[in-house]
Design a protein around this nucleic acid. Sequence first.
DNA 1: TTTATATATGTGACTCACACACATATATGG
DNA 2: CCATATATGTGTGTGAGTCACATATATAAA
Lengths: 172, 172
Amino acid sequence: MTDESRRTANLLGAAVLCLHDELKTVLARQFHRSGEGPAALCALGHQPGLSNDALSRLLDLTHTGTVRLIDRLAEDGLVRRQAAEHDKRSIALYLTEAGQAARENILRERLAALEAVTGSLSGDEQKDLARLLEKLLQADAGDDTHKLRTCRLCDSRVCTNCPILVSVSGAN
Amino acid sequence: MTDESRRTANLLGAAVLCLHDELKTVLARQFHRSGEGPAALCALGHQPGLSNDALSRLLDLTHTGTVRLIDRLAEDGLVRRQAAEHDKRSIALYLTEAGQAARENILRERLAALEAVTGSLSGDEQKDLARLLEKLLQADAGDDTHKLRTCRLCDSRVCTNCPILVSVSGAN
DNA sequence: TTTATATATGTGACTCACACACATATATGG
DNA sequence: CCATATATGTGTGTGAGTCACATATATAAA
């Protein structure tokens, strides 16, 4: 590794930290709970009927942690537990109306914050950035669970031609 | 905003999330405490003698949160509180030998993880990425405190020619 | 078919990393 | 000299997770 490539790696780390801080702040404004709550809402909007177990893998929480998370979201009236039809042990999770609205807000504000940053680049630079990010995401994709994890806050209406597309059925 | 620029923004968000997860995992392996502990160690290595107050601004914690954080780090034998010479109210924080070693590990593993990702790009692509990241970091730099915050996990030996260079004296 | 084992969810008790309200010591400006 | 601002610390609380354990259903084996 050259000094220059090390410098680039470090710049990437700084950008990741800076942007993550910013996105965290934005989400906190939209959503009074911290942790994986926003990600759970987004994922459930994208894949309604997910089980506790599938969600726990997607969020990389213990199943217990996911139970508590769903308790909180249900208490806030954002998520609804329902008996699953095929397996009586499992539950199926759905967003309520309020949950869908919360998800919309989260996705919108997140994207606005990101656009404010990429907006400092020219059109050509944005194209370059997109291409480089695609390569980075592909290189770091991992298995299906990891891919779903990476996409857990994505806005599927915006992410056309996802570079790490995964068969959603792999989630349950 | 075009659909394409929205897509780029979303890709950036996905990459930030994915890499942040990965860096978090790496730090957790190196350092059994979560939260801002690693950042505190790195910052204190870079700016020895920082006060609780300056550190709390840098980490964006309440001063109380920082007191407790330092309690934990001191308990682990990584940080030492010392009376400040100029202002008897404030304390000066220094890393112990063990603290310096912990910091080294954190910086090394963080950079290794980042290099593993950027390593998937060609030399030219890495140069492009560096240039774009510099622009993004500059666009999002903010005031001196925000800049220091962005750099709180950087390895100063590697970050030559920092794109958002800040006068360190602004920190105290 | 009965039985053993694996899987899905849930509960109780705990921990960690913060926050807020309040107290104390030192600095600083009128 | 005194009022106010600043720096640190303490008591108490909370949110978000963990682990150990319990229960219900599914599946495979005898």
